[in-house]
Design a protein around this nucleic acid. Sequence first.
DNA 1: AGACGTTTAATTGTCTGACAAATGAAAATT
DNA 2: AATTTTCATTTGTCAGACAATTAAACGTCT
Lengths: 245, 245
Amino acid sequence: MKIDPNSPDLSAQIAKAIRDAIMSGKLLVDERLPSEAELSEKFNVSRPTVREALKRLGAQSLIRTQRGATGGAFVNRIKFEDAYGQQITTSTLLLSMNDVSFAVACEARYALERACAPLAAARRTADHLATMRAEAHRQAQPGLTDEAFCASDVAFHRALVDAADNPVISYQLAGAVEAMQPLMNMITFSARSREKIIGFHTQIADALEAHDAKTVDTTLAALAAYTNELAQNVINARAAARQAN
Amino acid sequence: MKIDPNSPDLSAQIAKAIRDAIMSGKLLVDERLPSEAELSEKFNVSRPTVREALKRLGAQSLIRTQRGATGGAFVNRIKFEDAYGQQITTSTLLLSMNDVSFAVACEARYALERACAPLAAARRTADHLATMRAEAHRQAQPGLTDEAFCASDVAFHRALVDAADNPVISYQLAGAVEAMQPLMNMITFSARSREKIIGFHTQIADALEAHDAKTVDTTLAALAAYTNELAQNVINARAAARQAN
DNA sequence: AGACGTTTAATTGTCTGACAAATGAAAATT
DNA sequence: AATTTTCATTTGTCAGACAATTAAACGTCT
C-alpha cells in the first residue's frame, strides 16, 4: 500500500499499512519486519517517523521489538492476557466518558454474564468454586472497605465467567465486568446489603456446584435487580439532596 | 509518577504515566496536555521520545492532536464507534493467532448473542427489522459469493445485537460477531445450507417482530448448532482428504 | 579440533538541532 | 471598525549522531 507523503499523518498511514499486512496474513506471526532503516527507505520517510508508526503498533500489541544484531520488530502473537488490559482500559473509559448510566452498564454486564451460566454450570471445576467461595468469604470480613468489597465482587464474577471455560467469552466479558467497578464504587455497601449480596454469591456457587444452570441464571437476575436497586437509591438520594439546596 | 531513565522503554513509561492520569481522572476529557517541549522537560527526555509516547496513546484513541498556535494534545472523548474498530481488530487476531477452534468461537458468539435475545425482542424497532429482512433477502440472491453471504450474515447478526439497544452490549459483541467472519469463510455454503440459514434468519426476524424472546433464543440455538455442523463437515472432509494422501 | 574470549556488525533506543506547516492571536493598515 | 499582515506557538518531519544490546564471526589457547 502506498502512502501520501503530503498528509500530516505519515506515521499513522505507515502503521495502517503494516497493520493491514498483519491482518491479511501477508505478515505471519513471529515474522520479522524490515529494520527501521529499511522501512524508512521503503516508505520514503525518516527513521523517527517509522518509529512512531512502530510504537503505534506496539501499543496495540501487534508487534514486539528486540534490540541487537538479530533484533528488530516482530509480528506478535497477541495473547488473551495481553488483550485483557487493553479491553478493560477502553471499556472503562467508554463508560465514564460517554455518561453511560449505571442501569445500562449493569444490564449489559448481567445479560452477558447470564449467557455464561449454562456453560459455567456444566464445566466449573473445583478451582473455580474454591475461588468463588474464597471471595464470598472475604466479602464477609468486617472492616472491609467498600472499594475492597467491589474488587472482591469483580474477582467473584470473573471466576464465574472463567468457569464457562471459553477464552473468547472470558476476554469479552473482562471488559464488561471490570469496567463496572468504578460505577459500583459510588455505592456505599451497608452491612445488610453486603450480607444480601454474599447470600446471592453463595447461592450461585452452590448452584454451580450442583450443575444447576437454571438457579444460577435466576440468582444472577435477582442480583442484577438488587444491584440496580442499590444504585438507584444512591441516585435518588443525590437528587433529593440537590433539591434540598 | 516518576520514570526510570535507565530503562530502554522510556516512551512506554511516559505513555503509562499519562494513561494513568487519564484513567484516574487527573486529566479530564478535552483537557490539553502540556506541549511536547514541556513534556520533554518535565520527564527529562527528548521530544522524539515524548512523541513516541503520544503516538502510543493516540493509537488507543486516548488523545488527539492538533497543530497550530492553540494546538497540542488533548484528552479524547473515546466514542463507541472509535472503539469498535480496535475491538474487531484485536478479536480477529486473537482468534487467528491462538488457533481458537471454530467450535469455541461459535459457542462464544452464540452464547453472547442469545443474551441479547430478550432485550432485542422487547426493544427492536422497525428499522432493525427492516435491516434484518433486507439482509435475509440479500442472502437469497443467486450468484452471491460465499464471502458476500458471510458479510451479510454478520450484518444480520449485528442488527440483532443492536436491537437490544444497549451500546455496551453492541460494543462487546461487535468483536465476537465480526471476528467469526474469517472462520466462517472456510465454509462453502451450498444452496441448501443457505436456504436453511435464511429460514432461521426469517424465523428470528419474525419472532423479534412478535416480541417472542423465547423463539428467538431457541432459533439462535438451532442456528448455532447448524453452523457448527457445517463447520464440522468441512473439518471432517479435510481430515478424510489428509488420510487419503 | 574444540572450547573460550574478543571483536565486529547490525539493530533498536535516545538525543540534538533543525525546518516546514498549520493556526490562532496580535499588530498594522485601510 | 474591518481587514490584512505579521508573528509566536505548536505539531509534523527530517538528518545525523551516539549509546546499549545482541548474536555472529573471528582468533586464541589448550
